[in-house]
Design a protein around this nucleic acid. Structure first.
Lengths: 242, 242
DNA sequence: GTAGGATTTAAACGAACGTTTGAGCGAAGC
DNA sequence: GCTTCGCTCAAACGTTCGTTTAAATCCTAC
């Protein structure tokens, strides 16, 4: 009895390196659903059916796991964005690329990711949208590092397409674009909207390309702020005590 | 010695009902900075210089405290939005209100709140933007209840201003607007941008009214999605393996 | 001035958290 | 055949969390 009796325990053939992938998949889904802080390592390892210590063994810490979850998809997606932009520029030859095409280079790789359920699909984009709004310093630092190159590349392209738009204004509009995009992708509400408004439409591809793109494109090409009559008129509202 | 000797303890004159307000203020700032989950009641009560049990005594639970923090500012703000919209409609008489004015009715009350530091100011709007992206079910339920009336009111106004825009499309565009707005208000990045791009501009009022508003207005009035040549051309990109 | 309800206080509760430990296991390497 | 190394495992670590308790204190009204 006190000797070893490991006889009855038939163990499922051990996963060699799939443990990391199982953890990443489970973490992606759970981080997406509950956010970073509200997701425990115990729920992740239980979902992944691995030992609790596996996360710290393979990734070091919960924060590093989170970064690994993001990197796995974000890095290829941003790379695809830059590559597509470069390809379109090459196609255009010497003539400047239109805003619409540049915008498409930004949206299409995100869509390709979204419609590929085996590679994370919508779950990941929702997680990404959440991360965009997360206050945790390590998340903000990580994201701005991941995005810096891609954003700079696109800002240059947009600047060439919109030579009359001041750089300052362009920075703001790109910021608004990323805001509307991440909010839409993250949306719990967006999913509800999709269900309500598109009971039979194909996928959410339609929404992004055919609804968000025109909206963003028009915003990008909007006339410069000019302190219109309406603005001046309503400026007084700000002073009231109401 | 074992008897009471409470002599030396000179206590600062007790706050009668300011305890609740101190808690709300501290919670607002800390929830804004760290998010709901990452903020502990202990840090809140320490900041507010009240006893730990005060939160559960006055508010019942951490979740109810969070809702109280939101309600205190959100309720008046949304009410002000509806009131301003109603006032503008009355001014316009029988002629339909312009999109621009409706949009202003949405933005100006948010601005008034933002520039009033004694009433929460920017801290609260950042918190609100965060809450918009928070996955916690009780937060999502609370927000959609708080916003339902106001959003429906504005959707009706926009529908009258844009009679040619299908209702479905309008719903999406309102969603995008709220996304860009909350993202901008919540922005850790936005604050960085403000510092970088506007070293001497007055306040962030300028940003909202003069940069975001034209962007959103153009998006609202954008032409209907029409499967343009560019979209069709690039649709192929979605099928590739690359 | 004393009874009673409202509020504050210090202390503790049990639970859950991220992380660490050390023994155990399986498959190469010499 | 023994060692070594990568990996898994159960158990425990110490901490922190939201919440609760019961006594102490304040304020008001009788």
């Amino acid at each position: 009895m006190p000797t070893k009796a490991p006889v009855l325990a038939l163990k499922p053939p051990r996963d060699p390196a799939t443990t990391k992938a199982r953890i990443l998949d489970a973490a992606e889904a759970l981080f997406m659903e509950h956010g970073f802080e509200a997701t425990s390592l115990r729920s992740i390892t239980a979902t992944a059916e691995v030992n609790l210590a596996a996360v710290n063994y393979h990734f070091g810490s919960k924060e590093e796991l989170f970064e690994a979850v993001l990197t796995r998809r974000l890095d290829p997606m941003n790379q695809a964005r830059v590559e597509l932009l470069t390809r379109l520029e090459a196609q255009a030859g010497s003539s400047p690329l239109s805003c619409e095409r540049i915008l498409m280079a930004l949206l299409i790789p995100a869509l390709k990711l979204a419609r590929d359920p085996e590679r994370g699909g919508k779950d990941f984009l929702r997680l990404l949208g959440r991360a965009y709004a997360d206050p945790a310093p390590f998340i903000r630092r990580f994201l701005s590092e991941q995005y810096a190159v891609m954003i700079a590349r696109f800002k240059g392209a947009f600047a060439r397409a919109l030579p009359q738009l001041p750089r300052k204004e362009l920075s703001w509009r790109l910021h608004f674009i990323m805001g509307a995009l991440s909010y839409t992708l993250a949306g719990t509400d967006a999913l509800k909207l999709i269900a309500e408004l598109n009971p039979h439409e194909s996928t959410n591809d339609e929404i992004l390309l055919r609804r968000l793109a025109p909206f963003l494109l028009a915003g990008l090409e909007a006339p410069l702020p000019d302190l219109s009559a309406v603005t001046r008129e309503l400026d007084g509202e700000l002073g009231r005590t109401g």
